[in-house]
Design a protein around this nucleic acid. Structure first.
Lengths: 343, 343
DNA sequence: GTAAATTATTTACGCGCGTAAAAATATAGC
DNA sequence: GCTATATTTTTACGCGCGTAAATAATTTAC
């Protein structure tokens, strides 16, 4: 059953009756050879175990078909989901995706870019940390390699940016909350790493002003990526201290909201929009678990698939046209209001 | 600021005053050259931008310093966490880890192994699907490359296996539940992919018999990786039909438990071990979100770090001694009971 | 059937590095 | 200071493949 192994392309050329340069053409683009020779090659490929040595293949190329995908933290479901979509898109387009997580450590982002550099990738899809990113390294990298940013923007870096329009999405939620009950307070991390956080805060302030309500922002102490723990500890503290001016809290993201819901449950507070409820909590991102919180979480859905698809397509277009000089494009997608039971 | 780029090792040899073969030695093992030459090299490295072309480096080697890490699904926090630990362990040991997720699709596991094959890895850490894995491909792969399995075992495949002792962990939980209230029913997927699921069912049956109670197993319909959704839909249905013989449910894993907790909340059931509670729910795995469910989930903690560390160390030992002939080792680690509020 | 166009083969070189062998140099021991 | 040992340099070859140029074979067009 196990097919005979072939050492190299010369040996394979011998057994399949096609010259080595033609084989080389075939492996670089199967459509570039005549149908009959292609058939001959593929029949031999079925009989013998041969695949080109990728190291030898890539040695001379100044660029490969590798695409790097760098995300801040694969443990965060948002990135694991969007990373998956991007990876599959690259694969479908005939590239070799390489997903790298920085595990929540900005220092690893730089390491990952350095590691990628050695792989001579055709392009990179990068969701940067933002504020915590080593911008000089990202910039230097983006000068050498086509880079498309997603999720978090760094002004002027990379060929393009695809993300969610926080102004639109937060306004959608604020409008809904104001219309259906008391105006929301805003709950966030004191020193958020992600630039979307500050965009959302700003959007909240502007939206509240437009609706003619007083804004109130409450900030949780704490560092790192344990958002649920921080949301639970700090949110719980604020709830028990009656720190919120209204009975409605808009959390900067779902993971904070999940923590706060847990704290509210522990305090015996009834959360939701029912008549017997004393608190409304809303989130942002449509985290995979937000359907299963108690109560289920009203939130904003970012269009993961669309962000992933657009980012990938944008990068492919740049790679295939090798046009790095054109105007940097920023694409902002709309969020959707997901009404569940928590608000 | 940007350092001058050096084309290749010859050019670098010229600017740093060390011969190319010595440089080659240095890059393969910095300790293999004299201190003074090492200093000379590293000073030049600081002044010039040079790194060896990894494709040229790996072209002739029959094995590289790459280590493949293949997990069934990075979207599952268990694997994203354990994958992270393993990745860092490889990195710390001077290897180049490459994490590949099969995204819940057994077919991708085979593709991932094939892709890894081309990378000539020194070894692979594999958490296989188990029942759904293409065992013949995994076997063929493991004959060529040192493979250490973790989480899920495939008898006789790979050099070693590291996982959790489901007998011990389930018994721990059953014992606790029986001692502190009504004996547990067991809730699981009807056709689970993961081999741990059937081990846990078996362990539950044996443990209940030892304790002298009647066992009851309830199985949720549904395929795929949406465990929370399945747990919620099927668990909710069973709860509302009073399908459970006792007021205590042990779920095969935390994700099912999270779904069932959500359903119980929707049904207005009070879950926990307090006097006013009518239902106890326990899980298994200590999922990162199990601290934040409502109520927080009593569960079994698998020792992620220890599994990761042991798996990595086992692989390193095999690689470095190049002993593939020795006895296949199976290591089972104990789980810990994490008592929270749900049971 | 013949000329033109397409495709394949032959030949040959180079990429960047690993690595082996012999010669040269540096270091350590006494 | 001298020998024995450790380390580096010199020289040279090969890895597996990309790729260019010239030639040969095949296909297409008419």
């Amino acid at each position: 059953m196990s097919k005979q192994k072939i050492r190299n392309m010369d040996a394979f050329s011998a057994v399949c009756g096609v010259s080595r340069p033609t084989l080389s053409k075939y492996f670089n683009d199967p459509d570039s050879v005549k149908r009959s020779t292609r058939d001959k090659i593929e029949q031999a490929l079925a009989r013998y175990d041969y695949r080109p040595n990728i190291y030898a293949v890539n040695q001379n190329r100044q660029t490969t078909r590798n695409i790097g995908i760098v995300v801040p933290n694969l443990a965060d479901p948002f990135f694991s989901e969007i990373g998956r979509e991007v990876e599959l898109a690259c694969h479908d387009a005939g590239y070799s995706p390489i997903v790298l997580s920085s595990h929540g450590r900005p220092g690893l982002e730089a390491s990952n870019l350095n590691a990628l550099w050695s792989l001579k990738p055709a392009g990179v899809l990068l969701a940067p940390f933002g504020r915590a990113s080593d911008v000089s390294i990202v910039e230097a990298f983006a000068k050498d390699v086509p880079v498309v940013l997603f999720d978090a923007n760094i002004e002027g870096v990379g060929e393009a940016f695809i993300g969610t329009d926080n102004n639109q999405s937060v306004d959608l939620m604020v409008e809904y909350l104001c219309r259906s009950g008391e105006p929301p307070c805003f709950f966030e991390m004191k020193s958020p790493l992600n630039p979307n956080a500050s965009k959302r805060r700003q959007a909240y302030l502007e939206s509240m002003q437009r609706h003619g309500f007083a804004a109130q922002i409450l900030q949780a102490e704490g560092e790192g990526w344990d958002f649920e723990a921080i949301g639970s500890a700090e949110g719980g503290r604020m709830l028990s201290e009656n720190a919120f001016a209204t009975n409605t809290v808009l959390c900067s993201n779902d993971r904070l909201a999940i923590g706060m819901l847990s704290a509210a449950y522990g305090l015996g507070l009834r959360v939701g929009h029912g008549p017997d409820c004393t608190l409304r909590i809303a989130g942002h991102d449509d985290h995979p678990y937000s359907r299963f919180t108690c109560p289920s979480l009203t939130t904003i859905a970012q269009d993961y698939s669309e962000i992933a698809a657009r980012a990938a397509q944008t990068l492919f277009a740049i790679i295939e046209s090798s046009e790095s000089g054109s105007q940097r494009k920023e694409t902002l997608l709309d969020g959707k209001l997901i009404m569940r039971n928590s608000a």
